[in-house]
């Protein structure tokens, strides 16, 4: 696991505008102008966010010198998701088993009455 790249991915994902840009790009490639429009942001501001996303390997730019369309690169996103998801899954399982145990303890307590 390349943790440096994961760091870059998490840092890139920490910003809501950048997440929204990724969500937009998940629907298909777009130019900076097209991306800037729904966000009510200037193109230089969007470009700054795009640079962060590019550095994290989440976005690539086309060769077309005029348009340079942005494209979503899903692989690092998947890696980051799976990395945390497995840890999350582990604890969700534990807590579900704890739910079952608590049901038992509640029943037992009800039967015996709680001693102070």
């Amino acid at each position: 696991m390349n943790t440096d790249r994961l760091d870059a991915t998490f840092a890139a994902l920490a910003d809501p505008t950048r997440r929204a840009i990724l969500a937009r790009l998940a629907k298909g490639e777009a130019t900076v102008t097209e991306l800037a429009e729904p966000f009510h942001m200037s193109q230089p501001a969007i470009s700054k966010h795009l640079k962060v996303l590019e550095r994290a390997g989440l976005v690539s730019r086309g060769r077309d010198a005029q348009r340079r369309p942005c494209r979503l690169e899903a692989a690092p996103l998947r890696e980051a998701t799976v990395w945390l998801e497995r840890y999350r899954e582990l604890w969700e399982r534990r807590f579900q088993q704890l739910d079952d145990l608590l049901e038992e303890l509640k029943t037992k307590e009800k039967r015996h009455g709680r001693k102070k």
Partner: peptide, 17 residues
């Protein structure tokens, strides 16, 4: 789970930020 997130991202319209 990862697949769901990916397709969720595809379905979610870009929020106005």
């Amino acid at each position: 789970v990862a697949g769901e997130l990916a397709s969720g991202a595809a379905r979610t319209p870009a929020p106005a930020v």
